[in-house]
Amino acid sequence: MKLLEIAHSRAGDKGNISTLSLIPYEEKNYQLLCEKVSIEKVAAHLKNIANGKIERFELPHISSLLFVCHDALETGVTTSLALDSHGKTLSSALLEMEI
């Protein structure tokens, strides 16, 4: 199963950091996401994109996870040559992950 079947995500940018939320459609799947979507799993999945440290924050009150991926925007939104310099499409990359 792909993550996109049970969760949605939004990417944000701060300098050279990409933030990726991961939110289950049904709150009962929050624990499953906590178990299945580890930092290691995300690092392996985004190995071509996130070059630095990845942090994972758990937000149980809103049943959501937040991944903060450092060194993920090819120097950052203002100086990157990439087509999507904000990394706005990276939420779609995360949701392609198989769990």
Binding site: G12, S21, I23, S64, L66
Partner: peptide
């Protein structure tokens, strides 16, 4: 929820 976590690094 999507907006609450948007561009939040901590």
């Amino acid at each position: 929820k999507e907006q609450l976590l948007y561009e939040v690094i901590n």
